[in-house]
Write a protein that binds this DNA or RNA. Structure first.
Length: 472
RNA sequence: GGCCCCGUCGUCUAGUGGCCUAGGACGCCGGCCUCUCAAGCCGGUAACGCCAGUUCGAAUCUGGUCGGGGCCGCCA
């Protein structure tokens, strides 16, 4: 059987990581089996859907490299399409079901329905069974699917194994709203049938809707896809990840200095494992090893610490050139102007050292600030902790003299000069170098000192030491 | 309330009756290295929710129990 899967996000908010992980699993599954991956925009809720969010979904998938298949026969271009373009089709499908007596018009009011519900509860009947075809026949209103009561709905879920739902626990659900718009159940099922979707891998929150989709699929004459209900993702607070939280949107990570490959790797290990002793692996390796049967049942917590670590791993694995390239735009936008060649030369000198200690691309500008800004801003805590100690003035004065000589000013020369200073004052490296660091970089925490000083250049370095001496 | 799902270190997980005095990773703690911070290296902390049962033997099977979660919309 050829594998055809789809991811069907609703463009009602910035795409959140839970959906992205579902997309990733579908994508890995499709790629593993040489199948087709379709992007369907579930915009049946016209009120809340917005093109901005649709663009965000696509930008996010692009960023991660989750390419949907182009040229697939799903109407729209590039293997993606919008349900709002097919409303007439859904409506017709609903009408056909009514014609075949598999669905019916329902013009009962919410109050009427609520009364029925209360009665069902009082009579200890299944609370879901209150919505059934009424005696009277309506010719307008919403269209409900008439759930057959003859047999339970059973299916084998790739993640949950065998599932059984008694028919009486499934209510007659609305498939077409009274305004003519299809509901999610209808549109989704019609599409899955029309586009011959073979596997539906989605969040566990849809598990209890699955009987509805199976029943509808049969009524529509389609073949029932294989389902796989993925465990849900939870936030660090243990609550379900929600679009309401900004930091659960992919967008936040796209803009927060994360590498797409790191994000992909991280999402992959949430509910799935490539092996007992591997955490870092490539997408190719994931594709080769992935299968839906191996997805775990338990829900997972989105662990930002682990993501940060993985991101650092990926950043460190970058070549110096890629890192430089990656950092250029954010750097220049942070400082509001392109760098001169001379500035790039200076930055490049310490960049590999910065790369080693970077977890997020966004933290790079602050590490390089001392090389770019004319005026140094001193970190207050660093100053108080280091510069108010005994002997700092001597250290700075001697450093000034030692660094002020003629000749080379590369890292080795700087180190020699500063070590000579330490020897002259008989002070240890730990104690003696920190004042110089603060004077030159403005902070007690910086890239390695000798390289930093060399990158800054003799003139600026001396000026900064002088400035600190005057501030003491 | 009804229906359904889940339950191994704080977190992500390996584990499918004996290889488990439960392995790896993140985090955390300690040490080494060291010009700060990282990185790296070494070591440590820490889990099979609980109770029965099946079995020579259970994290693995069964029942119960407790706990967590999802869904019960003319949202998706």
């Amino acid at each position: 059987m050829s594998v055809r899967v789809r991811i069907a996000p609703s463009p009602t908010g910035y795409v959140h990581v839970g959906n992205v992980r579902a997309a990733l699993f579908n994508w890995l599954f499709a790629r593993h089996h040489g199948g087709v991956f379709i992007l369907r925009v579930d915009d049946t809720d016209l009120e809340r859907s917005d093109r901005v969010y649709e663009d965000d979904i696509k930008a996010g998938f692009d960023w991660l490299g989750l390419d949907w298949d182009e040229g697939v026969d799903v109407g729209g271009p590039h293997g993606s399409y919008r349900q709002s373009d097919r409303f007439d089709h859904y409506r017709q499908a609903a009408l056909d079901l009514v014609g075949r007596d598999l669905a019916y018009f329902d013009d009962r009011s919410p109050e009427e329905l609520e009364a029925l519900r209360q009665r069902a509860t009082a009579e200890k009947k299944h609370p879901n069974s209150y919505i059934r075809r009424p005696e009277r026949t309506a010719t307008s209103g919403a269209i409900r699917f008439s759930v057959p009561q003859d047999a339970p709905v059973t299916f084998h879920d790739l993640v949950r194994d065998d599932m059984v739902f008694e028919a009486e626990t499934v209510d007659d659900f609305v498939i077409l709203r009274s305004d003519g718009a299809p509901t999610y159940h209808l549109a989704s099922t019609v599409d899955d049938v029309d586009y011959r979707i073979s596997h539906v891998a989605r969040g566990e929150d849809l598990l209890s809707s699955t009987p509805k989709h199976i029943l509808l699929t049969r009524a529509l004459g389609g073949s029932v896809p294989t389902y796989a209900h993925l465990p849900l993702l939870f936030g660090p607070d243990g609550k379900k990840l929600s679009k309401r939280h900004g930091d659960t949107s992919l967008k936040a990570y796209r803009e927060g200095g994360y590498l797409p490959a790191a994000m992909l790797n991280f999402l992959s290990i949430l509910g799935w494992s490539i092996g007992s002793d591997r955490t870092i692996f490539t997408v190719q390796e994931a594709i080769a090893a992935f299968d839906l049967e191996n997805v775990s049942k338990g829900s997972a917590i989105f662990d930002l610490d682990k993501l940060a670590w993985i991101n650092g791993e990926y950043i460190r694995a970058l070549s110096a050139d890629s890192f430089r390239e990656m950092i250029q735009a954010p750097l220049e936008s942070e400082f509001g102007r392109p760098f001169s060649d001379e500035e790039w030369t200076r930055v490049t000198l310490v960049l590999p050292l910065v790369q080693e200690r970077t977890k997020f691309l966004t933290e790079v500008p602050s590490q390089l600030r001392f090389l770019i800004d004319e005026d140094l801003t001193f970190d207050r805590d660093s100053w108080e902790k280091i510069m108010t100690k005994e002997g700092v003035a001597d250290i700075l004065r001697v450093a000034q003299i030692r660094l002020g000589g003629q000749g080379d000013f590369d890292a080795a020369a700087v180190e020699a000069a500063l070590r000579a200073m330490l020897e002259e004052l008989e002070v240890g490296a730990k104690k003696g170098l920190q004042p110089v660091r603060v004077a030159v970089t403005g902070s007690a925490i910086s890239p390695p000192l000798f390289e930093s000083v060399a990158a800054l250049g003799r003139e600026t370095t001396l000026a900064r030491i002088q400035e600190s001496l005057e501030r003491l």
